[in-house]
Each structure stands twice: as C-alpha cells, then as structure tokens.
Design a protein around this nucleic acid. Structure first.
Lengths: 130, 130
DNA sequence: GTCGTTGCAAAGATTTTGCAGCGGC
DNA sequence: GCCGCTGCAAAATCTTTGCAACGAC
C-alpha cells in the first residue's frame, strides 16, 4: 500500500491510541477487548488487519519473540523486554539498561542483519506469590 | 511426570535423534516429516506430545522467541540465534560471539530473572538472491 | 500386569481471507 | 466518486486433547 492511500479510520485510530496508551504489550484479542468499549461493533478481523498495516507503516511493532502468541507494542523506540514464563506478561526493560554486543552484528556469515531483540525470561511478582 | 516413569519409545527416540542431528531449528511439522521416513504411521499429535515432554525433561529446548511459530532446538547449551525475516529460517550464532549485559539481570524490579534470549534479525543469503 | 504412550480424530486457539456494502478523503 | 476499509463469517494454520488399544519396563 502506498502511504498516500493510508486512511485514518475511527477503528484504526482507536487501535493505535489504545496501543500507545497501554504499557502492557497486548495480544490482538486484548486490543479487541479494549477497543470494543468505544466501538462495540468492531470485528476481530479488523483489529488484525489494522495491526498488520500499522506495523507495516512503522507506527507500531509486532512482537514475535515474546512467546508463541503474537503481541503488539505501541513504542517503536529501541528497547528490550522481559517476559513472565508463567503468565505470559511482557514488560519493558528500563531504558538505561543498555546491551553491549561483543561483536559486529553486520558480520554474521550468511545473513544481512537488520536488528536484534533481547528478552529476559523470569517469573513476575504476581506469579511468584501463587 | 516422575523422571523414573519416562519411557524411551521408538517414536520418542527418533524425534530426539532427528532433532539432535538437525542444524535447523525445525517446527513440529518439520520434525513430523523427518520422522515419518522411518515411522510412517507416527501421528503429529505424538510429535507434539513428545516435544513437550522432552523439553520438560530438559533434553531439548522449546523456542518461543524466533517468530510466531514454535521451533525446537536439540542443543540445550547456552547459545543465541539469528533468524531470517523473510523465510523464517533460524540458525545458531557462532559460539564465540558472546554477549555482554551492562547490568545485573537479577536486579529487574518486579521479576525474578532466570535467563535471557537474544535473536538477531536479518535476511539470509538465499532470500537475498530472490 | 501396570500405566505411560500411541494413532486417530475432534476440538481449541490463533490468524487470515472473501465478499458486499460503507465511508474517508 | 473512488477505492481502501469494515463487519461478518468461513477458512486456514497451529496446537492440544479424549479415547481405546498398544507396548516399555
């Protein structure tokens, strides 16, 4: 799709707004729930289609490295995640925690590298109490 | 399941063997294909059940951080991965590429950290040619 | 012989898609 | 008014599960 053909519909705007407001990294279904408060007739298919388009256009990030179920991130800035192995919750790592790679990621044979992701795995406080 | 109740069936043995032999990080379906050469009647359900058990027992690793589809790794040693954004292929990073975290992963508020994963994202040579 | 495991098939969960009408620009 | 977008529903994809027979130990 040409960016010039991109239309900001009510559905798309709400999805983007909810995602940017949210600190969790919701699944498509969770976003669907959030948006339905304000647009009860929106369909889950529309949510999926918009999440796909918004990530293609660079407005949001598709997370495919935090468990089997896909999640979405309204913050496209460079940052890492931490994930609870028990409940699946995903949080941001504090921004000042910087990662140092001890090699040049451009020098991996067989690949052209465009980025990387880091996910810490643990158990969150809530799950630890159970 | 108590480890003492663990039975090494023909199916389980073959799955483990194929996984250890393989350098790719196959999906359940790909493992199913591999094993069917030698056990044509094995079912996909059996493959899934065994992969689950083998990973619980620590024989293999379940990869949930290399794209939406789950993959499995016969190498349980500490190592990182690189993934092709176009075809989904996953390779190991050479072992001498070590990661330096600039902080103590035990000190993340709200979590008890048990491990971390790093995945480089890029395009593999084969996909680059297309 | 016990009880964990298997093949089969159905169900569950997640994601994608075809289509006719709607609505942003 | 054009054409991208929507809701709906069906389909596709991936994973789990119930069950009766089988087989590892």
């Amino acid at each position: 799709m040409e960016p010039s053909d991109f239309r900001m519909t009510r559905q798309r705007g709400l999805i983007l707004q909810e995602l940017r407001k949210s600190k969790s990294h919701p699944t498509a279904d969770e976003i669907y729930m959030m948006v339905r408060d304000q647009l009860p007739n929106i369909s889950l298919g529309t949510v999926y289609r918009n999440l796909e388009i918004l990530s293609e256009m660079g407005y949001i990030l598709k997370l495919e490295d935090c468990g089997s179920q896909r999640r979405y991130d309204g913050d496209t800035g460079n940052h890492y995640h931490i994930r609870c192995l028990r409940c699946g919750r995903v949080d941001d790592l504090p921004g000042n925690l910087v990662l140092g790679l001890s090699y040049d990621p451009q020098k991996i044979p067989g690949y052209t590298v465009y980025g990387h992701s880091v996910v810490l795995n643990g158990i969150c406080t809530a799950c630890n109490k159970v």
